[in-house]
Design a protein around this nucleic acid. Structure first.
Lengths: 152, 152
DNA sequence: CCGGATCCGTTTCGATACTG
DNA sequence: CAGTATCGAAACGGATCCGG
């Protein structure tokens, strides 16, 4: 069973946060849950250009243990599991937002399509409103992708 | 020579950002540079409760390759090297800030001393001003720790 | 001394095959 | 569909060594 160990505990909140989020996949799963409306194992699998199934299973479990994600079985189909962000998880929205904006500005400026650019402008102009919308979506269990909703 | 490989490039800026930052140590080094005023190999070493020297060397090089950190030799002491955030690196301030606030709220609420609490309140109340102060410190090459400066 | 590089045992990752 | 099991390949951490 793979899994990272908590190590540095230097008392700094950043270190504590990175104990859970400081790896290649966790934030991508959170992004899928938060802005793409994904909720099943299968959906995550086809998302970030292929995470291995064992790693995905491990990360979901770690995130659940950390209280960032919750899971429940589909009442209509016993073999299906729905994942969802907890309150603690949706509170990561500002982190994800800033990471997205930094990445868009410095790491992938040319790959940003018009929809992404529009969203970027939206976020820069009305940060608070945007975050409020993300949370509202979460409260209402709205599973439509966030970007089309904003891109119009 | 250890080193992570860029892998997922799913076109999403978050994925691109995590190609560089999605590991256990990079953001901690950036925190040390940004808010603690650290600038030498030795200082980083004694910081996050012990990163191995080979890993530290590798991460510094990766961050430099990514354009987040720059290095220059101490003109007065040839064996010493000073590291510093680039413009791209200081642009990570909002990400680090949000990570810090999330961690303080959800992961290490009890370990937050009065100074940290004061800083949290300050950041929550005047986010823009706080970020401006961080950037100003960077522009002026101010190496005093950020927290005492704010804690008063 | 300082900033690394090298070596080595251990842990984690990633790909794929497989199961309930 | 949602995970386990397996296994070779990386990456990690610790210790040590080395050039300046």
């Amino acid at each position: 069973m793979p899994g990272l160990k908590g190590k540095h505990r230097s008392g700094c909140p950043v270190g504590a946060a990175l104990d859970v989020l400081g790896d290649r996949w966790s934030m991508l799963i959170i992004r899928d849950l938060m802005v793409r409306g994904y909720r099943t194992f299968k959906e995550f699998q086809g998302s970030g250009e292929g995470i291995a199934t064992n790693i995905l299973a491990d990360r979901l479990q770690r995130l659940e243990t950390a209280g960032i994600v919750s899971s429940e079985k589909d009442p209509e189909d016993a073999r299906r599991v729905f994942y969802r962000l907890t309150e603690k998880g949706i509170d990561l929205a500002p982190v994800l937002l800033e990471l997205l904006m930094w990445g868009a500005r410095h790491e992938a400026p040319k790959s940003a399509g018009p929809v992404m650019k529009q969203m970027m402008a939206m976020m820069a102009k009305d940060r608070v409103g945007f975050l409020a919308e993300v949370r509202k979506r979460w409260e209402e269990r709205d599973l439509t992708p966030l970007i089309p909703k904003f891109g119009g």
